[in-house]
Simulated assay, not measured.
Amino acid sequence: MATHVITGAGSGIGAAVAARLHARGDGIVLHARDAGRAKELAARFPGARTLVGDLADPGRLSWALSHQSLPDRVDSLLHIAGVIDLGAVGDLTPKTWRHQLDVNLIAPAELTRLFLPQLRAARGHVLFVNSGAGLRASADWSAYAASKHGLKALADSLRHEEHGNGVRVTSVYPGRTATPMQVRTHQQEGKDYDPSLWIDPESVATTIVTALDLPRDAELNDVTIRPGR
């Protein structure tokens, strides 16, 4: 039975992926920012294990995980959690920059470092849910796009470093997806939100599970997904 460590399983794409893997009997280890959230996830996915650590404070993740029971085997590490705060460069504060860089880039790097021994032993898979903003930046998207451009660099470097260890690395770049984050994005943009215009999280989940299930003779490096409407 494969074991998957998943961030962002509370809603949106992460919840869809966790549900798929849980339903087929895979082991899932769900990251939560605090004990209350971990309890909610455990109730939602019976039999799942949870790990608690604040992605907004990546410098303490090693300490937090050292006080918990980690899985002996990790077949995949799925970085799906993320945050977004839009604003013009002239208005963004260091705190806003730092929060997005911590959650979207530095925490994934640190979690990857901490789980690399298990991933190498299992010849596992690290998958990053990036964004269309990780390939191009628009006005008011500088901090978020910078964190996602950095995430692409992290994935590309990791792929070269770990190829010899049999670790596969995939970046998925969804366009706008009908998730709670998209609701927040529309609010920040001052736009009406119509989920029917955007990608269903289940469609992104299908892409992610396909990448995980690909036979060992192939590897999906970069996958871009765009709304079909």
Rank of each mutant, 00 (worst) to 15 (best):
A35N: 11
S62G: 15
L105C: 00
I28E: 03
A145C: 09
D85I: 14
G190V: 08
I80C: 01
D156W: 02
A15E: 07
A107D: 03
G90F: 13
Y173Q: 07
D72R: 15
V103H: 06
V17A: 02
S171Q: 15
L197I: 13
R98H: 12
G124Y: 08
A35I: 10
H149S: 04
R120C: 06
L116T: 01
F115I: 06
G12P: 06
P71S: 13
D156S: 03
E189G: 13
F45N: 00
G36K: 08
I80E: 00
G87A: 06
S196E: 14
V204L: 06
W97K: 10
T7K: 00
S11D: 14
S142C: 08
M1N: 13
A137R: 05
F128H: 11
R159N: 05
A35Q: 11
L51A: 05
G90Y: 13
A32D: 05
A122V: 08
E162Q: 13
Y193I: 01
P71H: 12
L41M: 03
G132H: 09
D26A: 12
L135W: 06
D102W: 00
D26T: 09
A23W: 11
K39H: 15
A18I: 00
S76Q: 04
L30W: 03
T206Y: 13
R120P: 00
G166M: 08
H186I: 09
R226F: 06
D222G: 01
R33C: 02
A16Y: 07
A42S: 08
V89Q: 09
R136E: 12
G190E: 09
A205G: 03
G10I: 05
A23M: 10
A81F: 06
G25Y: 13
I199A: 03
A153Y: 06
R73H: 08
Y173E: 05
Q188F: 13
S142I: 06
G134C: 00
L21Y: 04
P201C: 11
H31K: 11
G150A: 04
F45R: 01
S131G: 13
Y193N: 02
T96V: 15
A16N: 10
N130Y: 00
T224D: 07
L127C: 10
I199S: 05
P71R: 12
I6V: 07
A133T: 11
K148Q: 06
W63Y: 12
A81D: 06
R44T: 10
F45P: 02
R229F: 10
